[in-house]
């Protein structure tokens, strides 16, 4: 049942325990208890809203920075990842297998602000070997949601 709840919440965090209970044929109180428990265990780490910021006037720049680092004895990549992800402007950090080690997503008000963060904060860390900054031009799809699609129901209203 927990996996069912998680899959539903992952696709729509607005669903209430009552909705979820109805959808999976379970008891509302049991669903609410499961959600609370999973929040405590940090299985559910937060609730987000998908926003297409391009549609609002607010300036927003997103960058993906490919970071190569020297892993440290006894701490591997975790310590350096921590030093990076603790910055507020960093939205996601992934450890990668491939041509670089850490994928760092940054969000800032302007190119200048993002660049400044990279050469001031990231590039100067002693374990960072190199950085490559890529700017996001447009977001087409995120978390399984396609931006900018028409959602109108084009089916005929009554079909036998």
């Amino acid at each position: 049942m927990k996996n069912d709840i998680l899959r539903l919440l992952e696709s729509d965090s607005k669903l209430t325990p009552k909705d979820i209970a109805a959808m999976i044929g379970a008891d509302e109180a049991a669903v609410a208890a499961d959600i609370a428990a999973m929040e405590d265990e940090k299985i559910i780490c937060g609730y987000h809203t998908m926003i297409d910021w391009d549609k609002v006037s607010e300036e927003k720049v997103t960058a993906l920075i490919e970071v190569k680092v020297t892993p440290q004895r006894g701490q591997g990549f975790d310590k350096i990842a921590e030093r990076i992800y603790n910055y507020e402007e960093v939205t996601s950090v992934y450890l990668m297998a491939g041509t670089y080690d850490l994928a760092v997503f940054l969000s800032g008000k302007s190119l200048k602000e993002v660049s400044k963060f990279v050469y001031d904060k990231l590039a100067t860390m002693e374990t960072v070997i190199s950085t490559q900054t890529n700017f996001v031009l447009r977001k087409y799809k995120d978390h399984g949601i396609i931006f900018n699609v028409k959602t109108q129901d084009e089916r005929l209203a009554i079909v036998p």
């Binding site: 089916r155 005929l156 209203a157 009554i158 079909v159 036998p160």
Partner: peptide, 18 residues
């Protein structure tokens, strides 16, 4: 029903068989 619904822009239909 189809004819009536077609003229009601705010109607919700649960009449679709697809």
């Amino acid at each position: 029903f189809f004819d009536i619904v077609s003229e009601m822009p705010h109607a919700i239909s649960l009449g679709v068989g697809e």
